[in-house]
Design a protein around this nucleic acid. Structure first.
Lengths: 355, 355
DNA sequence: ACAAAGAACGAAAACGATTGCAGCATAATG
DNA sequence: CATTATGCTGCAATCGTTTTCGTTCTTTGT
């Protein structure tokens, strides 16, 4: 079956049509110079209308596509945007983000390339190439930093270098960045929990960092605004995407003399992964305890009961990131660094009960 | 705090060090010709030992890195490998695979670029660029197809074209491909289930395709080998990564006069997502029913009870894919197309009970 | 000591595109 | 009709490398 399909489409002249069409070929076919062809294909103004159309037609017929390397060499533009991330990307948020970046770059005619740090050049053998040099070497037009050690000199070098760079989920002063609006999202969550009647709200946050600080700030602020006084032992440190390291704080909360009626988790994973702990103690969700996750991973919708969580708009973040970096690239002079906060939205599941 | 850090590393001469060092600069500094510098840096033989070392030293000191575009133009090699995937990549398997590809490419001095199909060129405006042309145009040295419509003429064009291509999880005759050994993995699962004492084993498989066929074949084969006669209505069609579309077949199985004692799901998602259905009917896992997933996503370890599943070795698949495509690239003539099957391993959770 | 071989290097031609400049028509203007 | 403006076009330089080929100078063998 499959073989049939292949045969059907097979290209017997496997090497036959491998000649690459270049400007020169079109020029000869049209009896004009390469310069004219180049101008015509690039849609420059000073070209004869009729001839331009003919050249374009012939180019299409001959299957012409510009050689990216030659063009990059000459114009110093690669139509390529670098993606920097250091750790593994085993998180749905990143997957969606990456998809978004790719698609948004694509519609603008840009490709995405991962920035690595190795190089085969002899004279630097063994040495690690720094990100910035790598980006320069690859003629990248811009860079999107998805996830990295934001305090490393390397990343800062990149952000302050001459290549347009946008940072995701971290703030550098004077640099372009796009962030999930962590502060506001916590506020929204607290608001919803409050509206459901809860007054004893606990928060297990992730490890220290930008994200955690924003969320914690949002949590306290919103509680204060609703007149809730948060006991000190209602806020515990857990760990992102690591249920095992959230067990301890969770148990501490449950064992409190006056335990919370609702617990906010650092993310969906650490929440879902601890359902077993709750079940083991005979705690019913949401009758006995309400829980709220964060991220809105797909599984939260599939499970019973649906997890109440907060969906970060990873797609929009990617969209904005590309928009900003393209502006920096194509609008070189007039570009003003901007810090964009992207809001997500609460996903109403079934684990937040009314009190 | 963050600002401090930035200030610390700040590069006040934000444009000062932006001059790019090229061969010519090194040549002048060393009083030799560019040709010599090029040869020295590339480690060619016909160069003086002492001078070569000096040139390398100077190059390093001046912070030289070759211009990728110029090199690509001249050598017709970009040190760039294309990645093709069409759908969204919201699946852990793909994330790991991508990470693996990236890292394995990186240690070999290659970068990864996504293949898209748009282009800004005037004469093709509006028309979709086909994958093959895009790959050529970008001077990609090789392509890894992660996920695509394998029956489309475009993909086949790519696989049969002159650019080294390796296909993941699909078989084309005469083409390089790396696959999860779906057949064998099902056999291993059935074996484990059999050893746990089960004789009434049902299988909900995913939608039709290569993967499903291999798994189904493995299922039947292994059952036969163990002397199990599989009733026709023990094998149902479900859908990958879509719990909702697995509910129907699941219910049909549960309502059977002689229901199975163990159900194999197409993947972890469709399994986990249906735990609620089972719970709603008061079915205890694994006392009343054993279930087995597929994929080994992280959440399966975090949940209680741990899901018994089968972990595909995505990392190894990526490793092999890069190995194969690099061989095809660098060993152009002597390369023999190979079909590599990568085995995974059973993850013993707690949802497979003894009968 | 002399021819042949070998080692190391430089000059220059590519690679395929873009673009400033000059030229040559033709059209517009006085 | 002479002059200037305008619209297209081609020539050639250029981007930063790699690589062929020839030259020079040193080494080796007899």
């Amino acid at each position: 079956m499959v073989l049939q399909t292949i045969a059907e489409f097979a290209y017997p002249q496997r090497n036959g049509d491998e000649t690459v069409v270049k400007l020169k070929d079109i020029a000869e076919a049209c009896n004009v110079s390469v310069a004219t062809v180049s101008r015509a294909l690039n849609g420059l103004t000073d070209t004869n209308r009729g001839r331009t159309e003919e050249i374009c037609r012939v180019a299409r017929e001959m299957g012409y596509y510009p050689n990216a390397a030659a063009r990059a060499l000459k114009t110093n533009r690669s139509n390529n945007i670098g993606i920097l991330y250091e750790d593994k990307m085993n998180h749905e948020y990143f997957s969606v983000l990456l998809d978004s970046l790719r698609e948004n770059a694509e519609v603008n005619g840009y490709d995405l390339t991962f920035i690595s740090r190795t190089d085969k050049a002899e004279h630097v053998k063994g040495e690690r190439l720094n990100y910035y040099e790598h980006a320069r070497r690859r003629n990248l037009d811009g860079v999107v930093v998805i996830q990295a050690d934001f305090n490393s000199s390397e990343v800062i070098r990149l952000a302050t270098g001459s290549i347009p760079t946008v940072i995701i989920d971290h703030e550098y002063e004077g640099c372009d960045c796009v962030l999930s609006d962590n502060r506001r999202s916590m506020e929204q969550i607290v608001e919803a929990v409050y509206n459901a009647g809860h007054r004893r709200i606990a928060f297990i946050h992730g490890e220290d960092g930008n994200v955690t600080r924003s969320r914690t700030a949002g949590f306290y602020k919103s509680c204060a605004e609703h007149g809730i006084k948060v006991p000190q032992d209602y806020v515990k440190e857990g760990h992102f995407h690591d249920p095992a390291r959230c067990v301890q704080p969770l148990l501490e909360l449950l064992n409190l003399p006056v335990p919370p009626t609702c617990i906010l988790f650092p993310d969906d994973y650490s929440c879902l992964g601890n359902l077993g702990v709750l079940e083991a103690r005979g705690i019913r969700i949401p009758e006995d305890l309400s829980i709220v996750g964060f991220d809105g991973i797909r599984l939260t919708e599939m499970m019973k009961p649906h997890l109440t969580t907060y969906s970060q708009d990873a797609w929009e973040i990617g969209h904005q990131a590309i928009r900003v970096v393209l502006d920096a690239i194509e609008n070189e002079d007039g570009h003003e660094p901007s810090q964009i906060h992207v809001a997500g939205k609460l996903v109403e599941g079934e684990t937040l009960g009314r009190m």
